[in-house]
Design a protein around this nucleic acid. Structure first.
Lengths: 201, 201
DNA sequence: GGGGTCATGTAATAGGTTACATGATTCT
DNA sequence: AGAATCATGTAACCTATTACATGACCCC
């Protein structure tokens, strides 16, 4: 089971990853991460970045390299990776690839309470979800096509392919669920009765 | 896009769900949620529960019903759902079923940096991930079988079935990824070269 | 009758998000 | 020249997790 990391925020992982190449200051990284679309893979907002740098500093994974000023803009502090930082990155990354983490998707919470809705409503909502999923799927596919035609190597798009795979799986699941609810010989019937409804169709 | 809720913690959703049936005090709910296995669907720890009750109170979704004492045990406060609480539950639940939420699974973060590992290591780690996934899959299946044979209705197990579906999808994805890396005509080759390795096998 | 663990909750701390600040540059 | 946006960071706030507290009951 996943070690307790001194810095647990995944944003820190991305930071370490970038500092691997060259030293940088937080704002610059903010820019880069956003441009490179990493904010799709890692939850990220401006404020947290400074926090993460501070955490990484006290953990000894990065150190202040220099503090420079450009004109009269605020001073900026440039950080570089330490050896411990390099080790941490490697170790952490390996762990994340090897060990599936137990997570709590919102949809799971919703499903665990879905019995509270009448089945007719549930079916309706699930159908809408299918529509949303279809839209997301299309967008995701376009994003991938665009990136590929821009010459981005597939190696740098695996996470986007994963997302696509999950969209497909989720879609299939929702379809199956709707079918089960509508199955006249299935449990949709008693569910409907409990809510005082006619069997859903 | 998902409204901003006065109380955003999904634990609150579960609380509202339970209070729908009868009033309760936090500790009791803590017990119930755990026994009912809801801690698999919703991230949950003892401390947060009291926080959530407080938030729900200030949001007006629950109110203090009475405050009772049993022997010399600490006093306990019993809460009940308000009408606003009932509405919120319904609205929130519907939203969660209808709208897929953008989320940040750890594996996505890992994949977005996987290029930093040499492909031979990546393949090895991904294979181990497959093993872990297989174990989880088995456990998940047992859990479902057990519950079913205990007479739990399928309606109350959809979230566990969803989990299973995701495990299958993730497994398929990882298999596919390994294959692609190992494909002698694919991009595994240049990746290996970049890391100064022989093509992975 | 001393050592766990149950029952119930509060307090301290750490983590993350939002809001604010301020000069520089660019746009209209 | 005033408005918007960029560049850079700090501070305030809110949320969540961990630790602590304390009497009751239960086990051996």
């Amino acid at each position: 089971m996943a070690k307790k990391r001194k810095v647990g925020n995944l944003l820190a992982l991305a930071v370490l990853g970038y500092l691997m190449r060259q030293p940088a200051h937080p704002y610059e990284l903010s820019r880069t991460l956003r441009e490179h679309g990493d904010d799709r893979s890692i939850k990220f907002n401006h404020g947290s970045l400074y926090m993460v740098f501070q955490q990484l500093t006290t953990a000894g994974f990065v150190t202040e390299l220099e503090t420079s000023r450009d004109g009269q803009r605020p001073e900026r502090t440039v950080y570089r990776l330490t050896d411990e930082g390099r080790t941490e990155l490697d170790d952490w990354l390996r762990e994340l690839v090897e060990e599936p983490e137990f997570e709590y998707p919102q949809f799971v919470s919703a499903l665990s309470l879905i019995a509270a809705l009448p089945p007719s409503a549930a079916v309706e909502l699930l159908r809408r979800r299918l529509d949303h999923l279809a839209v997301l799927r299309t967008e995701q596919q376009h994003l991938l096509d665009k990136a590929t035609s821009d010459g981005v190597l597939e190696l740098f798009l695996v996470e986007e392919e994963f997302r696509l795979a999950r969209l497909d799986a989720d879609t299939a699941f929702v379809r199956g669920l709707i079918d089960k609810i509508l199955d006249p010989d299935g449990w949709g019937r008693s569910w409907a009765e409990f809510h005082g409804e006619a069997p859903p169709r």
